[in-house]
Design a protein around this nucleic acid. Sequence first.
DNA 1: ATTAAAATTGACCAATTGGTCAGGTTTTGC
DNA 2: GCAAAACCTGACCAATTGGTCAATTTTAAT
Lengths: 226, 226
Amino acid sequence: MSEAVTKAAEAKDQDGKEESSPGHIRIRNRALILDAAEQVFATQGYRGATTAAIAEKAGLPKANVHYYFGTKEALYRAVLEDILGLWLGELDRITEAGDPAVALADYIRAKMRHSRERPLASKVYAHEMIRGARHTRDFLKNELRSLVKEKAKVLEAWAAAGRMESVDPVHLFSVIWAATQHYADFEVQVGALVGRRQLAAKDYDDAAETIVRMVLKGCGLNYKAP
Amino acid sequence: MSEAVTKAAEAKDQDGKEESSPGHIRIRNRALILDAAEQVFATQGYRGATTAAIAEKAGLPKANVHYYFGTKEALYRAVLEDILGLWLGELDRITEAGDPAVALADYIRAKMRHSRERPLASKVYAHEMIRGARHTRDFLKNELRSLVKEKAKVLEAWAAAGRMESVDPVHLFSVIWAATQHYADFEVQVGALVGRRQLAAKDYDDAAETIVRMVLKGCGLNYKAP
DNA sequence: ATTAAAATTGACCAATTGGTCAGGTTTTGC
DNA sequence: GCAAAACCTGACCAATTGGTCAATTTTAAT
């Protein structure tokens, strides 16, 4: 038997429950394909990724990939939507009622956790941005922009209340995103600099603290090492 | 006549001097191809780039591209070497004799200038890192690592002399590189956030100042807006 | 003027690409 | 237990890929 069958079967067989609910095959196979697609798109980019490579990594025949997602582009959009769903929401930590230093520090640490746990997702997003956001432009101009505008109001309110110094919100978020995502996207570079093939938990923690320290102090807030 | 001839001719015809020195055709065409390759590799990634697209952008037949560079991979390496040659050296600003605040601020501003002036180069490098540095791993482990180690000694000396606070050098440089290169690689995202299709000079200047402010204050140095 | 070296390129190739489809098997709802 | 829906996939296709090559023209040095 091919690895495909083994892998697919494993997915739910572990504990024998709900092995046969209505759409369970669809759900399982779509997840299998999305997972494989994330890997291939992350390492090869959109044009470099082939549906054959995705199918092989998913353990399914290529025709099956097209059966579930139609075209390569539709599959790519599905992967991107998955990622964006994952990333949005972490900004909820930043509200006017909260403490600026705590909120920013928590947000940075949460973002760094994403870089450590889902580096492939970050890489797909990085590819998409570098390529000019062909599939994401509307999202950037609408959802993301208004989300940042909303959080900008919080920062302004904090500054007006003397709770922090005034900082350009777009550049503040850009620095936070750039610095945290760097540890996913440029993992291999940082790894070479610290002399380890793979980054250790400590590396991510140290990185997060360095970023927290710079951002807090840059905003005129107190920072104390944990 | 094809556009190729026109374009190629233009390259040196502007002022009629040294139109025919020994290797001038080789030099001109290699430059034409490297330029086109940088564009295509930056927007399509390694696998997504086609030699046909590069040839068309250079205004030359595809066979000519292979005449000068042999294979697609050799051309890619040539582009990367061009980029690395461009990037190295800016770190010279950081020496023990200099002032920490001035040296770091100058370095950040210089790096941001590169992001503005050569965004495509930055994008090719970003692609290469995301893909796992297949063609650059040795450079990272040797040249780059020892360069950073060298600069780490400068930072330690500054800290030991009480001229700045102690900061992990790898993470300091990572933050600086990530933040500055972000404005080249994620140009389209920042553009959407500031509501402009293309970033203006002011955007880059504001960004640089925000980064300088965070880095200097994060290192316990004084920062005064220019 | 000669000629060797350099440069040019249309035509070609085997391999790979995203995508299709007909005919099959399995699952599901009743 | 049965029909419809969902699922599966080997075989196929036109287009594109990186790369080659032989024949030709242009350039450089004597």
